[in-house]
Design a binder for these strands. Sequence first.
DNA 1: CACAAAATGATAGTAATACTATCACATAGG
DNA 2: CCTATGTGATAGTATTACTATCATTTTGTG
Lengths: 226, 226
Amino acid sequence: MATLLKLQMNENLFLRDPQDTDLGRKIVHHSIQLIDELGLEAFTFKKLSVLIGSTEASIYRYFENKHKTLVYLITWYWTWLEYRIDFEINNIQDPFERLERAIMLITEKKGYDHSFPDVDETALQRIVINEADKTYLTKQVDDDNKYGLFKGYKTLCNRIADIVSEVNPDYPYAHSLVSTCLQAAHQQVFFANHLPSLTDHAGSVEEVYKRNFMFIHELVTKAIQK
Amino acid sequence: MATLLKLQMNENLFLRDPQDTDLGRKIVHHSIQLIDELGLEAFTFKKLSVLIGSTEASIYRYFENKHKTLVYLITWYWTWLEYRIDFEINNIQDPFERLERAIMLITEKKGYDHSFPDVDETALQRIVINEADKTYLTKQVDDDNKYGLFKGYKTLCNRIADIVSEVNPDYPYAHSLVSTCLQAAHQQVFFANHLPSLTDHAGSVEEVYKRNFMFIHELVTKAIQK
DNA sequence: CACAAAATGATAGTAATACTATCACATAGG
DNA sequence: CCTATGTGATAGTATTACTATCATTTTGTG
């Protein structure tokens, strides 16, 4: 039986902490379900309120708007991913092996994590694939950044860039390389599903993920080779 | 004096060809200006119609909705970029040099091209940086793809992937590598402007673009090295 | 257990958005 | 000249993205 855990989230992501109440947890759980099902554009607080048998007004007490809700969910995912990387490479000494494990974790298909019963990580990974870029591709990106809304992503990126620098301290593009690979990790899956001529990954879902791991692993390895 | 040119666009991108009439050209010209200024979310046909002294109804006769308008503009950019690559590498024999020129063209900051007087390529490049991913990150991506709306992007990607394969026919991820680099080419600029801890590119605008060229050039070169 | 405080629900209302429809007017080409 | 096409003017609708108010329920604390 897994230990129940709670990830610490930046307070500017919400008005009332959704992890603290029944309604809050319902909002998180069902917004994942509904964004996955409808996509961000068709997702509304009205539809969500009907789904969970509550009201728009109540949901607005937790999240300022649907954009902040998305940023919250996506940030939760990055924070969770960083936690999993930390956990897994904790007692590995060899920097290169640490890097390999990290690449494995960012490129693998996610399953349900029993430590977080309200979050369907499989659905959330699909949301990351389809919607994550929309968190920052807005006119308010600088404001949002000022309030620390992207700290989860930046911390994750820096964490992995540090490992890159452990392997090769002279490689000058560690951050660019990692942010590029984090992007490719989900973008290539999207392309394999919808615009297959933009990738070389084909076959079953498992094969796509496996091939994507090999592509990114090789890309990173060669890029930072001394 | 430059020759005036017209890029052939997929007919499913519009209801009436905006390149054929005064109003159409005004719509293209000012939608670039307005999306650049307001961002896609705040851009509306109402605001555009006021700006060009026309009406919403008239604009709807050219484009089905603002999403299609964006796809049209972004596709125009990819088509233009491919034309420029073709033009520039036309009489270069060495595959590696052809590839280098292509990477230069996808990563360089764009200036105004007098062959297309209605299009402000500098503003359009900013739109590509901020909004391009939104063309396909939607629930209707498969429908849109069926109607050929992404052909411009796919053709460009394949064109460059072919050059990659000329340099190294055994590299198995030519398409993935190119789509990843096309993405990085604008994403890294966005990060340098708004989320600088996600890149290693800093300094003046010119330095950011130059460093990004070097990053991507090195990434590709090492990736496809035999 | 009582009571105050906090959370939720019910309801209403508003400005803006994303369209669609209709009809009149302009004009451009054959 | 006259017809077809394009454009403008105007109106209307359902939905969205909120905000506000007040009643009711739940909860934590003394």
